[in-house]
């Protein structure tokens, strides 16, 4: 690994200032993706800015039908949170299934979203729940945040501070893990809200997380798992690799959606 200048600012403004003064800086949240990337030499920043001490970024709050999760909140904390478990149990389930126990003790929601790995779990919840990504300078609706594989609409130096999840009527998440890496080969987050059903699939799309409109249409008509068997999921733009080709991923999107709906309906 190439060496870099490490800093651990205590506030958002300090972090942004360090970033502004560096040649090629990267923020580090939980580091569970960034450190492997640095080890492999896939990124060689001059500066790594650790957000671990920025007090504004941690914590979970529920109020007025919104669950707000600070960007540096670890997956294990979200998974174990009674507040999240009561308000959006599917979100706690999702967090409890990311990586493994050790990864969940370090990995954060903000880091996951800033990285936007096409196989990460959190993007499915953010898009499925139509959450708002809050940064140090603005608020981004989920639909405008994700910008393809490993790409987001974050500007250079911009820091995610929190994510605001509207509490749905009901929701479910089902993940089919890659047999080797255990990342999502297909993960589907289904949310039923007053304004309709949203279905977001991760792990499957060539451009990262996306909404599956054919399934949303079917579920808006009938929010049950069984009728979904007749829905054909288009294979266009789905990923193919040694573990799953586009046809299998398309099929799994349907199966995982049905399982997520069953969970949302309280039938596992």
């Amino acid at each position: 690994m190439e060496d870099f200048t490490y800093s651990r600012p205590a506030s958002l403004s300090d972090a942004v200032a360090v970033h502004g003064n560096a040649d090629d800086a990267m923020y580090m949240a939980g580091g569970q993706t960034l450190i492997p990337v640095l080890k492999q030499g896939l990124a060689m920043p001059t500066d790594v800015i650790d957000l671990g001490a920025v007090w504004q970024l941690d914590g979970i709050a529920v109020s007025g039908g919104t669950v707000t999760i600070g960007a540096m909140t670890r997956h294990a904390v979200v998974a174990a949170s009674n507040d999240v478990g009561r308000a959006i149990p599917a979100l706690a389930t999702l967090a409890g299934g990311i990586g493994d126990a050790q990864v969940r003790n370090r990995g954060t929601i903000g880091g996951s979203l800033a990285n936007n790995d096409p196989s990460a779990d959190y993007p499915a919840a953010v898009l499925g729940l139509n959450a708002t990504v809050v940064t140090d300078r603005r608020e981004l609706a989920a639909g405008g945040y994700f910008d393809g594989m490993f790409a987001t609409s974050l500007e250079p130096g911009e820091i995610i501070t929190a994510v605001k999840f509207p509490v749905p009527e009901k929701a479910g998440y089902a993940k089919f893990p890659n047999p080797a890496s255990r990342y999502a080969l297909v993960g589907v987050f289904v949310a039923k809200t007053a304004s309709g059903v949203r279905v977001a699939a991760t792990g499957a799309g060539q451009d990262g997380v996306f909404r599956v409109t054919v399934l949303e249409d079917a579920l808006n008509d009938d929010f049950r798992a069984a009728p979904l068997r007749d829905v054909t999921i288009p294979e266009d733009n789905l990923m193919t690799d040694m573990h799953a080709d586009a046809a299998y991923r398309a099929h799994l999107i349907g199966v995982m959606t049905a399982r997520a709906v069953a969970r949302a309906n309280g039938r596992d």
Binding site: P179, A180, S181, Y183, M242, H243
Partner: peptide, 19 residues
């Protein structure tokens, strides 16, 4: 798994070689 055309190793880490 090797790529049949290039001979590159596809399963070059524990991300793709399942244990």
């Amino acid at each position: 798994v090797y790529d049949p055309d290039t001979g590159q190793l596809v399963t070059g880490s524990l991300m793709d070689y399942g244990l």
